[in-house]
Design a protein around this nucleic acid. Structure first.
Lengths: 295, 295
DNA sequence: CCAAGTTACGAGTCACGTAAGGATT
DNA sequence: AATCCTTACGTGACTCGTAACTTGG
């Protein structure tokens, strides 16, 4: 299970092709074939189906571990690099859209501006995976990731090393103004298993998370939104393209939609802070402190 | 950053010796020296001080990642093996002592006995690290690990893949019966920074966790208890060897000690369930379901 | 029949072991 | 002087590329 075997395996699985993976990694097809064969013989398990190339059940399981391992390798390299290079006075924050929408985050950024007015702060918004991997790789000093959790649980962040909860908010179902459910004081997630849902994985909680917290299958995507703009998503939901779940903090006052709290199961929208090693006296450390539960 | 370089680095750091690591891994000293040199040149950073051999700052950071990576490699192998081999009807549970003491766990085990009377269940008690790594390596189907957390946070478990909160309990400071603090209705952790503490890392929360949740240094160990027996630890605290923190659920009714709730910071004793892939209809899946927040 | 993965085989590289060379206590 | 790590060097194993082969749509 050498790292480059795992890297190759991940590339093949992602691209669904030995030759494409070979091209991406700068190998020949034959080399890739040999590497996969070596990995399969090491683990004594078929990892990929051929023609078409898809992961087997065992391969799919391995893939999850491999993603975490490769990310952590990047994180290790970035962390060591950070120890050796001079501490930076600038700060780059990675945000998921709804994490940025949280009042706690807005307040902390404002406080940081007051506390360290000379710090050069830049913010990048992206999907959950982008933020998590960006932090791991050291591209961001700090990441803020949102998601759905049971009360008391934390988010399944890819690189869990340094993570702490920053904010929690009630979850609401966004509906067109005239929707029959809009009159209700609260809805049960289980009643919406077979509804039309919008998959907007880079903004709202991905439907896989909804299934996870509900403990139910279903919640199939009838509509897919690939952008990262919250208002666009709300507009889609308001015009009846499908349902989506959003935290109360993300909803503007009036926009021609209704929002009904989710009453069961008890689920919270949660924003979590993730970061690697923080140099003392850096803007990143200051922001982390402002965002910490004690801060 | 090949896996065997990381493995060697971890061994050298753990043993504090190139030669000892070589002996353990079946290499010559020279090979180990070359591997460390290769790793250091790859990362362009000194990772180990020589004579005596100790990790540098960068090495220490790397070491944390390496531990996680190597563990995850084991976990990946175990997970794949589980997919290929036939599902087992037996169940092995790894427990930290205080996790086993939680009523929720006792009830779930009893319920499992009723639900699947024929299942062969075995339980092993060990320290947090042993349980976490045992689960990752597939030695345990399920692990139950306890620790100290802020409300809403989850435990920093090494392999976070599948983890969920199972039980929470108030934290108390255990004191000899006549202790001055024993009359108080509650104590602040900050007032106990300079007290005599017992380090009993395999039973009670390790003092490093206490420092973490308190956000303070101090809490130095005046006494070290290496066993895994809760009653022995309580006896030590009751006879004034030092302080320890225990969840209310672990304390017997009367044993010549006092216990005062911790009122600040708000901290909970938390039991967390960790597991790899669970085969459907296995005793492990049944127990996980019984222990899940919904179960 | 073509695209795509596998197998065979040779070549270059790389990592290990042996052995000699420092350095530190 | 002894212990322990480093460096030098030769050899063997391993992995990659080329090329021929096979299989599936």
């Amino acid at each position: 299970m050498d790292t480059h075997l795992l890297r190759t395996f991940a590339a093949v699985a992602r691209l669904g092709s030995f030759s494409a993976a070979a091209a991406e990694l700068g190998y020949t097809q034959a080399a890739v074939s040999q590497q996969i064969a070596a990995l399969e013989s090491d683990l004594k398990a078929a990892l990929l189906n051929r023609r078409p190339v898809t992961p087997t059940e065992a391969g799919a399981r391995l893939l999850e571990h491999v993603a975490a391992i490769l990310l952590r390798l990047d994180a290790a390299r970035a962390d060591v690099a950070r120890m050796t290079s001079a501490p930076s006075a600038s700060l780059t924050v990675g945000l998921t859209p709804l994490a940025g929408g949280s009042p706690a985050v807005a307040l902390a950024l404002a406080a940081l501006r007051r506390q360290m007015p000379r710090a050069e702060v830049s913010v990048r918004v992206g999907g959950r995976g982008d933020v998590a991997t960006g932090v791991a790789r050291g591209e961001f000093d700090i990441g803020l990731i949102d998601g759905l959790t049971a009360p008391g649980d934390s988010l399944p962040v890819l690189v869990s090393e340094h993570a702490s909860g920053v904010a929690q908010a009630e979850v609401l179902v966004v509906l067109p103004a005239g929707h029959p459910l809009a009159r209700r004081a609260g809805v049960h997630l289980a009643d919406l298993v077979d509804a039309r849902w919008i998959e907007a994985a880079d903004v709202a909680p991905p439907l896989s998370d909804v299934r996870r917290v509900a403990g139910l299958d279903g919640f199939r995507a009838a509509f897919r939104y690939d952008g990262t703009d919250t208002l666009s998503l709300i507009r889609l939901a308001a015009t009846g393209q499908g349902l989506t779940l959003l935290p109360g903090t993300a909803l503007p006052a009036a926009m021609g939609f209704s929002a009904v709290p989710l009453t069961a199961p008890r689920v919270l929208h949660r924003v979590e802070l993730v970061h690697g090693t923080l140099a003392a006296d850096s803007p990143a450390a200051a922001l982390a402190d402002l965002l910490s539960p004690r801060g």
